[in-house]
């Protein structure tokens, strides 16, 4: 009985806190993406640019670690039994990717664009060593290019 109570409390807490945090995060992401819309971040490597016009080219990195909540983890475990799209992790990774890119863009303050953008992800935390998902880290990096003001 005691174990069941703990389980249910964790489940409710995971769902409540997880949903709240996610909503809050998405609001912040949407707002900041809107603000940084003018700064293109692309995967292209070579640009047809007049190199003499480039003032600076620096590497910018943005990284974020997001943990999965108890409810989502249980949902994913259940999904592991039956198979199919693990929908509960989709928003987790979507948030992490977008947050990492945002942080990278914020780092590239004043740049005209970020080229050669790469996104990488890894699973970290104690559970990750057991082949499970602990927390997810997403790192985004690229080359921020600032142009000479003409």
């Amino acid at each position: 009985m005691g174990e069941l109570t703990v389980f249910l409390v964790l489940l409710a807490l995971g769902y409540g806190a997880g949903t709240l945090a996610e909503k809050h995060h998405y609001r912040s992401i949407n707002k900041r993406e809107e603000q940084l819309l003018h700064l293109p971040a692309v995967t292209i490597k070579k640009l047809d640019l007049d190199e003499t016009q480039i003032e600076r080219a620096v590497m910018v990195v943005g990284s974020v670690v997001i943990s999965v909540d108890y409810f989502k983890r249980l949902l994913a475990d259940l999904r592991n039994i039956f198979g199919g799209a693990v929908k509960s992790y989709e928003s987790l990774l979507d948030r992490a990717r977008r947050e990492a890119i945002l942080r990278m863009k914020e780092k590239a303050h004043g740049a005209a664009m970020i080229v050669n953008v790469r996104i990488e992800t890894s699973s970290i935390g104690k559970r990750a060593f057991k082949g499970k998902l602990g927390s997810v880290e997403v790192i985004a990096y690229g080359t921020a290019i600032s142009m000479k003001s003409s």
């Binding site: 769902y15 259940l78 929908k87 979507d94």
Partner: peptide, 19 residues
């Protein structure tokens, strides 16, 4: 497009109920 519009509670009930 990266997020499936879905109700997590409903998915949980379906999966746990099925199990």
């Amino acid at each position: 497009v990266n997020i499936t519009p879905t109700s997590a509670i409903r998915e949980f009930l379906v999966l746990a109920g099925g199990l």
